[in-house]
């Protein structure tokens, strides 16, 4: 396969995301820009300009109409996907580290950083889809996280329940109405949870962590189902739809990169078998740690964004789709 290299960012990538059909790829980075690309040929459709700080996170709704982004300039912005216009801006006392759309696209959840005397807070906003420029400034629900701050979050199918990953390695379920912790697993990881992605039917999810492992956890009781232990801190983990693999990306911290060789850097995307917990393949290419990985919803391509500022979009070969490393064993998705 020949990867498509997207060079629309001048600084390291923070998050990339496919839309529901997988034809658009959204990317955000520390250079304040959000880009949108056509995934089939790497053509840049446009940019969303306006943030004045590192854009930490983006998410797109299921209809690919609205885009939401969170940035270190303490803003949460709502954009029109088609035109690049900013529709609404929310202001917070601290940086926005993670955003996610709810299942029916009428709610968003965001995490704001714990800093300057402000606690890490989770806010849920109602999205007015009729008139996107008229949104409520006040969150629908808001609560502070007690203890270790939250780093990643996502909505679940259960109404008003969100899933969070924390700096201590804890994974929790919260009821957003009361701010009550419904369920938690303190020992899901032993270090910062860096990414959290749900599987298609949302019965389980994958988390990656700086503790060098990624785990598939059951969404009901947050118990680990599978563990993938690598030799490098992980920044991102994704589940490959239709194939029994998970994709893990990471590498040593940016600060120690200059002191080690490229080969030892471990800047590869690793493919692990989802069930047998064995590594089945690797893809090289990045010059720095991989910060974020996203897989096309149809499982035909994946993209990785690195500390080197590149996004690499890989359309899988036929051999990947046909490969049966463990014989005639099919896994239903």
């Amino acid at each position: 396969m020949r990867p498509i290299l997207l060079q629309g960012h001048e600084r390291s990538l923070t998050q990339i995301k496919f839309n529901k059909e997988g034809d658009l790829l959204f990317s955000c980075s520390k250079d304040h820009i959000i880009n949108v690309w056509f995934s089939h040929n790497g053509e840049r459709l446009g940019t969303y300009d306006g943030h004045n700080g590192t854009v930490w996170t983006v998410d797109v709704d299921a209809k690919s109409e609205l885009l939401v982004s969170g940035s270190a300039d303490n803003q949460l912005r709502l954009w029109s996907v088609a035109t690049g216009k900013c529709l609404f801006v929310w202001e917070f006392p601290t940086a926005v580290k993670r955003v996610a759309f709810g299942e029916d696209d009428t709610k968003i959840v965001c995490i704001t950083e714990q800093r300057m005397g402000h606690q890490c807070a989770i806010r849920v906003f109602d999205i007015n889809r009729e008139e996107p420029t008229r949104q409520s400034k006040e969150p629908l629900h808001m609560f502070n996280i007690i203890g270790s701050k939250a780093t990643v979050c996502a909505f679940t199918y259960t109404p008003n329940v969100i899933l969070t990953g924390h700096e201590s390695g804890k994974v929790s379920l919260f009821d957003v109405r009361s701010g009550e912790e419904i369920e938690n697993n303190e020992r899901a990881h032993s270090d910062v949870v860096t990414d959290l992605q749900l599987c298609k039917d949302q019965t389980y999810f994958i988390t990656s962590s700086k503790d060098k492992s990624a785990r598939i956890l059951d969404i009901r009781n947050l118990m680990p189902i599978k563990t993938y232990t690598t030799e490098t801190p992980l920044n991102s983990a994704a589940i490959a739809p239709n194939r029994p693999y998970v994709l893990l990306g990471g590498g040593q911290d940016a600060m120690s990169v200059t002191t080690t060789s490229l080969r030892q850097g471990k800047f590869e995307t690793r493919f692990w078998h989802r069930v047998f917990e064995e590594e089945v393949g690797r893809v090289k290419g990045h010059f720095g740690p991989i910060n974020t990985i996203a897989v096309h919803p149809a499982g035909t391509c994946y993209a990785s964004g690195g500390e080197d500022g590149f996004i690499r979009v890989h359309h899988f070969d036929e051999s990947y789709l046909r490969a049966k490393p463990y014989g005639d064993l099919e896994i239903m998705d």
Binding site: P3, G42, G46
Partner: peptide, 26 residues
């Protein structure tokens, strides 16, 4: 739109290039 406003259709060489052939062997 944005920085690409007015660009002609098709990938722009400035932002989109094709990398070297890679083999992913499962």
């Amino acid at each position: 739109f944005g920085k690409e406003r007015g660009s002609k259709p098709g990938p722009d060489m400035a932002t989109t290039t094709v990398g070297e052939h890679l083999v992913l062997k499962i």
